[in-house]
Amino acid sequence: MSAIDAAFANHGYVTDGSTATALRLMISLQKPLLIEGPAGVGKTEIAKALAQVLQTRLIRLQCYEGLDVHSALYEWNYQKQLLHLKLSENDGRSLRQKEADLFDQTFLLRRPLLEALTDQVSSPVLLIDEIDRADEAFEAYLLETLAEFQVTIPELGTVVAQHRPYIVLTSNRTRELSDALRRRCLYQWISYPDIEKEMQILQAKIPDINKALAEQISQMMEQIRCLPLVKTPGIAESLDWAIALMTLHQGVLDTETMQETLGCILKDRDDWELVLHEMKHGEFLKNTLSAGNVER
């Protein structure tokens, strides 16, 4: 268990017990891993770190509304096919030969899913990011890949993976995923980190950060996340904030600096006002900040 922790720590990713177990089982059971959680808690980062740890290729499929099988799996190069047809019009070959030529591998455009299944060297990491953004119809295309590690192309037949890819799916829970998809995956939920873990992450990602600032940021974020915000900031925002503060050469966080850099963590006007209000009148934000003010 600690070997995985250490390997990930080397690549700047802080794992906890359950995430480490998830990765270990995913590798041993050869099952896809479905990761859910709020935005900005490092779901995508897991796949990136996994690729680095395993020293393999990361193939990423970003899902979006309207994503179809031709952008995700394969597509024929129609322009090239048409050109080929025109050029070979009068070469006297039989129809059968022409057709065989037309749907040859040379006209096949490999999209991420096919790319991941046909890797000749080693098992790549296939990241299917924000699967909830794709529509339900697309989920169905995925089932064959997820369960059998193969895809069926009508013109070519079934392509079976020589090296089974490590598949990581992420979802923000925009919609409920289908039971069929869930059943084929291991399931891991990642939520916002606690103060200690967030400090570790800050220190791992930004080695130059001083410990006091990291601690203050973590405490602050913990409190801000308890507020009823429209958009709760994730770890990505904490990191941005920490880098912003360091760029401004701020060793500690005080009221003034916080007001100036609030844009790093809050991306909504109402949230902004709520936090400013809390800073003025609320209890907890004030306490953390006053420590910074005194030190200054």
Partner: peptide, 28 residues
């Protein structure tokens, strides 16, 4: 899968067993 998962994590530590089973058996 849950039995295979337990084979991998071992049954020496109850936390490991629980986490392994949770991964395999839960989906929300």
């Amino acid at each position: 899968d849950s039995l295979r998962a337990m084979e991998i994590t071992g049954v020496a530590n109850v936390t490991d067993v629980k986490e392994a089973l949770r991964l395999v058996l839960c989906s929300s």
